[in-house]
Design a binder for these strands. Structure first.
Lengths: 138, 138
DNA sequence: GTAACTGCAAAATATTTGCATCCTT
DNA sequence: AAGGATGCAAATATTTTGCAGTTAC
């Protein structure tokens, strides 16, 4: 089991309160977090700006990735081991629940490959499924 | 060929300058538009607020749909005929070019169905592929 | 004539930038 | 000690809301 500090170190980031706290939140959350989620749920309160900058650093260094949404927010979730800086492999399906609004990373469901029209060269794909999640189906 | 007015009428919307103009922009654009795109590219300038409200109406009535993005913007694109009010069938793949940043609707590429873990009930899916588009591969 | 649409003003929210201070290495 | 991270203040940008005047049917 990798410690928070190890993950930060491995990705070339200094170990600071803000980063430990926010990364910790991701580790104990099985799912995706928005900027607002993070701002509200850290032990200590951090400045809005710090949260922005921390998330940005995390994305740059490959610790987390962004998940597309249709409302105008960005969701972030932990990358698995095969994400390295500057080269994300965010190839699993994300599930957004219409009831509880939670987003779940379906690690075991990989995004299928599609055949594109001539001339289109793909580098990454993402897939979102909406519906009702495990918890809301009780 | 359906006229702009027909489309508006068919969807139960009053025919107004703003709506004709914005719908026209979608019809002559083969791709997706952001709020900002629309604000800049209409013949006449419309108020920001009018654009917001028009887009909202269009989405509600099933004329356009929202496309998820990883930056914090929403893109909108025309729905095809099988979208009806309140029930979008936005089941084709969207392609975002890393070079020119344009988003293209790949009408002919349908989103594949994936098998979800037990307990998850899907209602809609969306898929985004990033890479280099037709134009940028010249 | 009535309901719906628009533009303006203003409020509420979200994001970015600069700078001085403090922390990590 | 030096570079990096943080918090605060302030500048920008984005989205929402209320209201009065105008337009579509």
């Amino acid at each position: 089991m990798e410690s928070i500090n190890d993950i930060l170190k491995k990705n070339g980031l200094n170990i600071t309160e803000g980063r430990k706290n926010i990364l910790g939140l991701f580790l104990e959350t099985n799912g995706a977090l928005s900027h607002a989620d993070i701002e509200k749920n850290t032990e200590v309160e951090f400045d809005r700006v710090t949260v922005y900058r921390t998330l940005q650093k995390f994305v740059e260094s490959g610790i987390i990735h962004q998940i597309p949404t249709t409302d105008n927010t960005i969701l972030y979730a932990l990358c698995k081991d095969n994400c390295v800086a500057g080269h994300h492999h965010d190839e699993h399906v994300h599930f957004i629940c219409n009831d509880c609004e939670k987003t779940t990373c379906l690690e075991n469901v990989t995004v299928p490959t599609v055949t594109l029209p001539k001339g289109f060269k793909p580098t990454h794909s993402a897939m979102i499924v909406k519906g009702r999640c495990l918890d809301c189906n009780h």
